[in-house]
Simulated scan of single mutants.
Amino acid sequence: MTTPDQHPTRLERTTTALGAEVATLTFAHGPLNLFDDAMFDALVADVASLTADPPRAVLLRADGKANSAGVDVHVFAGLTPERGAALWRRLFDEVAHPLEQLGCPVIYAAHGLTLTAAFEIALACDIIVAAPKAKFGLVEIVVGLTPSMGGPQRLAERAGSGRARELVMTGDLYDAATLHDWGVVNIVTDDIDADARALADRLADGPTRAHDATKRIIAAWRSGGVAHADDITPEVSGDLFATDDLQGAVRSFLDNGPGKATYTGR
């Protein structure tokens, strides 16, 4: 139970050596980081803060023994079909979709057990970084449920529909190496905290508007296939020619060669 001097999450903003803002959202709700009502409410508030004032990169991570042992089953007790649907709709509208729509790279760092809601949140991020000992699972079958924050479809996008059905229907746990082989986890590293933070800093220092354009083009592909992505790319990419970052990087390339440009996110 959360006491008045505790908070289930922690949202901190720092700047890189080049002045780019990075937001770190940490789950800090006891050793198992269970998603109870307080945790969901805190996460919704943090995502709203990130949406209202976007940084140039976001890192999601966790304190404690586990990234999360999943949802506190008390959340499901007594739900009617209508209230259950409302819960999932809220988590799509106020967590999964806003995370995906942030105009900057979003990284999830998994150092340990990452179950149910936490895994589904990770799948809504752009890049998943994991420690070798991390284990992942969508284990909702233990309460007769299917993952309902977008996990199955996002897992299918990364690993294929057959793998998604296997992982969800068995309720088994999968290690980082296996999910890296499947294309679900992007990077496996022993120094998870340092490497995830370094990646967040590196992406924050990059051309933020171009990263946002990449996300928008891929989102178009996800919703409408290659033809839809092709249809929106000319305008989305064309708009980048009005950005200070592209104009400055082109001048830097021509004057000094590749790799020497710096970016402001504008």
Rank of each mutant, 00 (worst) to 15 (best):
A62I: 04
D53M: 02
D63Y: 11
G248E: 04
A23H: 05
S252P: 02
L240I: 03
A23D: 04
A130W: 01
P4C: 13
D231F: 13
I192T: 09
A200M: 00
D175N: 10
A242P: 13
Y108S: 08
L79K: 09
G112K: 04
D53I: 00
P54L: 01
E140N: 12
G257H: 06
P234N: 10
T80W: 13
P258R: 05
I121N: 14
C125M: 11
D126A: 02
D36P: 05
E166C: 05
L254P: 05
T208Q: 15
D231R: 13
G248W: 03
T233S: 09
A86F: 03
A220F: 02
F241K: 04
V168T: 09
G259R: 03
A124W: 00
A45I: 01
H180Y: 00
I218D: 06
R163L: 13
A134K: 04
T189S: 08
I127M: 03
I107N: 00
L32A: 15
L199C: 04
L167T: 04
R202H: 08
L91P: 02
G248A: 15
S161A: 15
A96T: 15
A204I: 00
T178Q: 09
I127L: 10
L60F: 15
K133Y: 11
C104P: 05
A196Q: 08
R13P: 06
R163C: 11
C125H: 05
A110K: 02
D36N: 14
A261T: 02
G84N: 13
F27Q: 11
A134P: 07
M39D: 06
H111I: 01
E82V: 15
A48M: 01
A20Q: 10
L102G: 04
E166A: 09
F35Y: 08
I218T: 12
E94M: 05
G112D: 14
R154A: 14
R158G: 03
G137V: 07
L32M: 12
A130N: 07
S252A: 15
H29A: 13
A242G: 14
T243G: 01
A196R: 01
A249V: 00
I128D: 01
W221K: 13
P31Y: 06
P132C: 01
A57T: 11
V168K: 13
G162C: 07
T178R: 12
M149C: 07
Q153R: 09
N67P: 00
E100F: 12
R216V: 14
V185P: 03
D46M: 00
R154F: 01
A110S: 10
V188A: 06
M149L: 14
V44S: 07
R209V: 10
G70W: 06
T116Y: 14
L99F: 07
D230P: 10
P4D: 08
K133D: 14
C125Q: 03
G171P: 07
T14K: 12
C104A: 10
A57C: 08
F119T: 12
F241C: 11
H111M: 00
V58T: 03
R266F: 05
A20K: 07
D37N: 15
P234T: 06
T243L: 00
D63L: 01
P147M: 11
R89L: 10
D195C: 02
A261I: 00
L179M: 06
M1N: 14
A156H: 08
G151Y: 02
G78T: 07
I128Q: 04
P4R: 09
P132T: 13
A200Y: 04
R165W: 09
A177V: 10
A110N: 12
Y108Q: 08
V185H: 06
